[in-house]
Structures are given as structure tokens and as C-alpha cells.
Amino acid sequence: MSQVQTAPRTIVDRQTAVKWLRQMHLIRRFEERAAFLYQSQKIGGFCHLYNGQEACAVGSIGMLREDDYLITAYRDHGHALARGMDPKPAMAELLGKSTGCSTGKGGSMHFFEAEKNFLGGHAIVGSHIPLATGVAFAAKYKKTDSVCLCYFGDGAINQGSFHEALNMAGMWKLPAIYYVENNLIAMGTQLERSSAVLDLTVRGGDPFKMPAYRVDANDVEQVAEITQLAIARARAGEGPTFIEAITYRFRGHSMSDPQKYRTKEDLEKAKQRDPILLWENRLLQRGWIDESSLEQMRDEIKEEVEAAIEFAENSPEPGPEDLYTNITVAPYIPQESD
């Protein structure tokens, strides 16, 4: 059932293509600045960067309708921005501010934006895969043709939740698209040390009676094409699709990762296939952009990200009273001793 896509085909118009390039640049710039802020200790806790994987989020989310849903794991900045989240609340969330996309209570791993049907970053590996399945269940239950796009890393498919959820999705023909972003390293464990088979489409497809595809996720157009296929299937009520997106993250698992599991040469080699470079070159070839508009785009993005940082830094911290807000819908009664 597994297929490997090779030749890119033009599947979006110029305007969308340029928008995607812009989004990829925005994600890259946003995260580079986030890394700097992390090292300046303005961002706390964990911070997992998406550098190198941008095409995967942009090419797939770019194919969704407004009434579709997406949900992802803890490496979630890219997906949020690809879905159109304003970088200001995104950056404010990283800084833990009350203007953040989760009001400063979620942080890097828990971005949410209900208005855009972005159901979050989720930090327990594999835990959100059943949630995605539930969202797809609801879409079908309510007799809509919305779909739910669910992203997770190659580490997550070893969790029981993955198998339980995909089994029910396959059995009930739920409109879900499961994207494993295989960056080949689950934190620090290479794929061959965590999976008995290296072709993940074997694990995600046949066992659950769903088609499985492998795609080169450095190529935003290939990602888009395969996503389009899966979406059409889901909307038609034919059930879920499993997609293995081969990608590579340029940075460590998190900000504290010494990356001893790979050599500098490996990394340099991978960077030659940087999805942004690939897409830029293709658009230049097609004559859809030129160097000067590219230059202008980069400058605008720099400004946009700096404005986001300024917004975040000038935003207020949550007040002490916010500790108890949004715990329950009903009035919350802290069960405290005094």
C-alpha cells in the first residue's frame, strides 16, 4: 500500500506558492529569534524547534479549509504559524505573557487557537493521537465533511495510544489524516534503535486498513499533493490516511540537546536540502519571484518578528488572580486548606 512520491507537480497558484514561502521564512525567523530569547533566558522550560521541517506543516496545512481541524505534538510553533497564527500572541506565549495564544499558561509546547480550529500542541508523546481521532469522530457524527490533520513524530508511533486510535479510525472510517514527521531521530534515539521496521508506512497503514504514503517533506509541493489526496478521501467518507513525511530537523531535540547522535557532516549535508532553499529556487525558476522581492520579503519578515518580540516583551505577565481562571467552566472552588 505504501507509495513514494518523486516528481513535484505544480498544484497551487503563484499567490499561494509565494504565501507558503513567506510562511516558511516566518517560521524559520520566528524560531531563530526564539532560540536567541531562550538563550537570553526570556523563554523558560522546554523549547522544541522546527527548523528544517517547515515544508511539512506549510504544505499540508496549506491544503485545509477553515472548517478543518489540526492538532499536533509539542514541536508546535511551525504548525501554529502555518495555520495563520499571528506571531505576536505566539511569541507572547513563549514569554509566558497574558497576551499569549494560551494566555501564558501553556508555553512553547501548548499553543492553541480555537478560532482557527488549531487544537493545540500536546506534550505527552502520542497522547493527542486519540484526541485527533475524537475530533474526526465528531466531524463524522455531526455529518460534516471536515477533516482533522494530526501530526506527531517518529517517536510517537511506539506508543499504545497510536495503535488504539488508528485502529478505531480505520475501523470506523473517520476523516483523519495522520502525519508522522519522521525526522529520523526520536529525541536522541535513531529510528533503527526504536522501530523494528524502518518503513513506517508498514506500521501505520495495513494494520489499520488505511492507505499509507511516504513523502519527501523537504518538498512543500509533494507534501501538498499527498495531503490533497488524503483530504479528498476523508471528505468522501472513505476514511483515514497515514502519511510518513521524511524530514530532518536542523536543531537539537530541544534547546538543551548536545546532538551527539549525529555528526556535523550529516547536518551540513541535510542543510543542502533545506526545504526553504528548495522552494525558493523552484519559485525563482518558475519566475514567480525575483531576488529583490525575496529580499523585501525577508526584510518584512524580520520586522514582523521583531514587532512580535516587542509586543511580547511589552505585554503584561498574568496576574496572581489568573492562577485560578479557566480551570473549569463552572465557578472554580480551590480545594485548599485555608
Binding site: 481541524y69 492538532i71 487544537l119 497522547s127 493527542h128 493521537i129 486519540p130 484526541l131 485527533a132 481521532t133 475524537g134 475530533v135 474526526a136 469522530f137 465528531a138 466531524a139 457524527y141 455531526k142 499504545g160 495510544s161 488504539e164 486510535a165 485502529n167 478505531m168 475501523m171
Partner: peptide, 20 residues
């Protein structure tokens, strides 16, 4: 459901997040 407590508990939660 199949005997998949984690799976169907999560499905329930996901569906509740979007209105069921």
C-alpha cells in the same frame, strides 16, 4: 469499542473539544 481504554477515552475528549 475495542478494548482500548486510552484510545476511546481520548476519542471522547477530542470529540468533546469540538462540541459533543
Amino acid at each position: 469499542t475495542p478494548i482500548s481504554e486510552e484510545g476511546f477515552a481520548g476519542i471522547g475528549i477530542g470529540s468533546a473539544m469540538v462540541g459533543l
